[in-house]
Nucleic acid binder design. Sequence first.
RNA 1: GGCCCGUUAGCUCAAUGGUAGAGCAACAGACUCUUAAUCUGUAGGUUGAAGGUUCGAGUCCUUCACGGGUCACCA
Length: 501
Amino acid sequence: MRDTIPPETRKSDQEIVREENLKNLAAQGVDVFPHRVDVTDRIHSIVSRCRDMSAEALQADEVRVKVPGRIVAVRKMGRATFFHIADSREKLQVYIREDKIGKDLYQRFTLLDIGDILSVEGPLFKTRTGELTVMAESYTFLAKCLHPLPEKWHGLQDVELRYRRRYLDLIMNPEQAEVFRVRSTVIRQTRRFFDERGYIEVETPMMQALPGGALARPFKTFHNALGIDLYLRIAPELYLKRLVVGGLERVYEINRSFRNEGISTEHNPEFTMLEFYQAYADYNDMMNLTEELITGLAETIVGKEKIPWQEKEISLQRPWKRIKLLDALAESSGLSRERLENREEIIALASDLAPDKTLLSYGNALDVLFDKYVKPNILHPTFITHLPKEVSPLAKASPENPEEAERFELMMGGMEIANGFSELTDPVEQRLRFEQQAEERKKGDEESHVVDMDYVQALEYGLPPTGGDGIGIDRLVMLLTDRRSIREVILFPLLRPKQEV
RNA sequence: GGCCCGUUAGCUCAAUGGUAGAGCAACAGACUCUUAAUCUGUAGGUUGAAGGUUCGAGUCCUUCACGGGUCACCA
């Protein structure tokens, strides 16, 4: 186990030096935890404004700045020092010399360490090598960094430390900070996308007495005053459709759902999902909307129709491929349609592929085959449609084939990104589907859908034909930033807590 | 949960079973346009934890902890 001793009980020599430097600063009358600071500029704005100005122009304009930043590199040469300050985006060089700033302030600067935060005031100039630089005429101490920063050249590499102390990752690895800017852009633009289309954003319960809307195991918790068990939601779906019953014809929600499952490069126990529902629409409309949303995001973030993905390229050129599940299976597994429709044979086949899996229904079995033969090989966005009705208890059956649902899953980069369908609106049918799920549960399938009679009652008041869709935001961000692990796009992914020894 | 890999100085990494090293960072000194600054010198370690084998273990064995990957579970 690493890092088991709390920092306060074991200090490196470097940490002791930093503490001493802080004490010395305080002894010199420096306010080491200042309340307020006047800054007029940011590194980013200075760089973007003045990077391309000539040395002469800078001098003529006498551009003065007062800019805060963290010291990330120091090059001391006797009575003059160059150092770089940085934020999570960019660096800016500062030149400080004893004859400009005075002996006392220059001496005091030796009490500052790499990692400290300060603000620097002075005019901008260009060095001989042409680098934009602040000539420090004064500086203000803003915060002490009591630990040495990771290595300046390689940054912070240790994956575990990067997740546990994400702030260090953000300080040391600007390209990582960029991932989270992209994430913010995805969410902001998604909101705008739906707002522009007459949707309203809503918030529905994350604590639910009956966890429904997906086939998954929930987290359980307890409400003291009511004395009842509650579950963290596995999906907002059933509440959002209640709102459509209530006449909110277009609703969306972006927020966390929670599933009590294994952790992998594509699964975090809490994850951000976008769900949207539109009255008077069906699953085809939802596929179209999904295409529009994602191509729009890619255009903003990547700037083109081909996005880099793990040494390859994903083409987002529309229209995206739409193929029935059984056809996709037939294509890539070599099994004929006849055999694929033979329930017993498929179940037996899937049992061989997934021997640990008990309770194999035909629908589950197709799923096993799909995960094995089709999913890993899908690079470009593809809608897999007409999934088995028995694994789609909330979707309308297909008119052509009552065993299939008017449902799609969007796959790309080997991942499932979206899942949508024509919502089942018939309350009698819905009740029947719930009862079938209850049978599965009795057999021991913990992921079967719970019976939610309150939801059935809502349907009894009339849900118009409605299309619904859920998109995994984390996975979408993975695709748009070319990250292979979901932990790279979640600021604080779930890790097992460290034990104190 | 199975299997594989990793854990060594603050960080990035070395080290045939035989005295634990380097670079960066730190400390002391030189140095007023450097930029992975340079030069000289110094210090820094319970090698993730606990056992075991051995004359001798960072290295081999066992168990455990945490992480990564993969398969399974799981949308």
